[in-house]
């Protein structure tokens, strides 16, 4: 277990050291107007945060979760009979075809 912890801590220290070295050798510029404004191709626009259409995003997320769980369950079905695996995959392929038809109906 300590090996797994080390495999995370050592790269973390390595990355921090590069960051620290960068802080030591980097140029220190002087302040000028508009320097720390968010970049907007020269236009004077305020910054915005991510805005996600939550209702449509949730539908997408639910599909994502179902299929991600499918992947993990499949990988755990190492010793199961092929019939069970096939029975498990068939409905998901049917569901995918259903999504495909619905998307075509909705026109994109």
């Amino acid at each position: 277990m300590i090996e797994v912890a080390l495999s995370i801590v050592i790269p973390l220290i390595f990355a921090s050291i590069i960051y620290w070295i960068g802080g030591r050798i980097s140029a220190k510029g002087s302040a000028s107007p508009g320097k720390v404004k968010p970049y907007a191709c020269g236009e004077d626009l305020p910054g915005i945060r991510l805005n996600i259409d939550v209702t449509r995003f949730y539908v997408y997320l639910v599909y994502f979760m179902i299929f991600d769980i499918l992947g993990v369950i499949l990988s755990l079905a190492l010793t199961a009979s092929p019939i069970y695996v096939a029975l498990f995959i068939a409905p998901t392929i049917a569901a995918l075809l259903f999504i495909a038809l619905r998307i075509e109906d909705a026109g994109g």
Binding site: I18, I21, G22, G23, I25, S26, A27, K28, G29, K35, V36, K37, P38, Y39, P46, G47
Partner: peptide
Amino acid sequence: LLSKEDIEPEVA
């Protein structure tokens, strides 16, 4: 890149 100035936007 390491030797360049590190600019942080004020609203970040």
